[in-house]
């Protein structure tokens, strides 16, 4: 608003600013130098190697350059297409549910008058730190044909016959979605909880005085303020779900049939379970990369981030 007044003095300070700007720019680069070096060496460089690998095919170390054959092969590979559609399904259903749940938890647990806050927070975070091996075993017990979930639903008269969750194509997917949500909601909650501390409390007080309900405060203050973090968590969760491996590997191993097979699990199978074809596995990995780029681009656009 004061830009018109500054116009006069701008001319004289322009050159000075330019030098300052350059200096600032150099300092800026030093801040990010270590990260650039490290990520280039340990991630970007191997990524390029992986890309070169994706142009090769063969058993183990007997690799030959095949050009784009691997990329063509993808479209005629029913297992890959199945893995792709499963993964997209997990993504579309699971990420929004988890983000909303995590937001609700963090707002509830940010209330300073809430008793046992630390306990509730730790409890809800606990699934994220629990060893996957153990929780997979327990999940399988819970969802077994004679497991707790079936017993409970039958006792409540919701079901008449037990559902075989892990052997049924539809219910196995639901079980995986429940498992990921269970494990990662508390994890996402941390990002919101920490970000909420950086919100000026006086904004809420002003809103309260203006008679805004807590629902209104949530939508008109909390969400806009948290936007950068919501963007961060949705991109990170998108990446996590597109690379989903652990839960599927340990709970259903991709079954029944290939009904819960994910792209990452397929990469694992191509590398270690079947006769290793690291070239084709790298090709499939680049599909994940491409998908994440597309989804992140959309999310950046939707969020209207300045970059």
């Amino acid at each position: 608003m004061s830009s018109s007044m500054n116009n006069i003095s701008m001319q004289s300070t322009k050159s000075k600013r330019l030098i300052q700007g350059l200096k600032k720019n150099t300092i800026g680069w030093t801040f990010i130098l270590l990260a650039i070096l490290g990520i280039s060496a340990f991630y970007l460089y191997p990524m390029i190697q992986a890309f070169l690998l994706s142009l090769q095919s063969g058993m183990g170390s007997n690799l030959d350059y095949v050009g784009l054959d691997n990329y063509v092969r993808l479209f005629n590979d029913p297992t890959f297409l199945k893995a792709l559609s499963n993964t997209m399904l997990f993504l579309i259903i699971q990420v929004p549910v988890m983000i909303v749940l995590a937001l609700v938890f963090s707002v509830m647990l940010n209330d300073p008058t809430l008793k046992l806050r630390g306990f509730f927070r730790t409890a809800i975070f606990l699934p994220a730190v629990t060893s996957l091996v153990a929780y997979a075993v327990i999940f399988k017990y819970l969802f077994a044909q004679d497991g707790f979930i079936n017993d409970f639903l039958i006792n409540m008269n919701i079901l008449s016959d037990p559902i075989n969750f892990l052997a049924d194509p539809f219910w196995a997917k639901i079980t995986i979605i429940i498992a990921i949500t269970w494990r990662w909601t508390g994890y996402n909650m941390i990002f919101y909880l920490s970000a909420l501390q950086n919100v000026d409390k006086s904004i809420y007080e002003a809103a309260r005085i203006d008679g805004a309900s807590s629902i209104q405060q949530f939508f008109y203050i909390t969400i806009p303020v948290l936007k950068p973090i919501i963007l961060f968590t949705s991109i990170v969760s998108t990446i996590g779900t597109l690379q989903l491996f652990d839960e599927v590997m340990n709970i259903t191993s991709g079954g029944p049939g290939n009904e819960t097979l994910t792209i990452s699990m397929y990469i694992y199978n191509l590398s270690f379970e079947y006769t290793p074809d690291f070239g084709y596995a790298a090709t499939v990995s680049y599909v994940i990369l491409l998908l994440v780029v597309v989804f992140s681009f959309i999310q950046f656009k939707v969020a209207g981030d300045r970059s």
Binding site: A35, I36, I39, A41, F42, Y43, L44, Y45, P46, M47, Q49, A50, L53, I239, Q243, F245, I263, S264, I267, Y268, S271, F278, A281, A282, S285, Y286, I288, L289, V292, V293, S296
Partner: peptide, 19 residues
């Protein structure tokens, strides 16, 4: 840099090991 978090680790694991 952000691109580097988008590829599954399994894909870069063997080149990284060679490094």
């Amino acid at each position: 840099l952000i691109l580097s978090m988008m590829i599954p680790f399994a894909a870069i694991m063997i080149p990284l090991y060679r490094l």
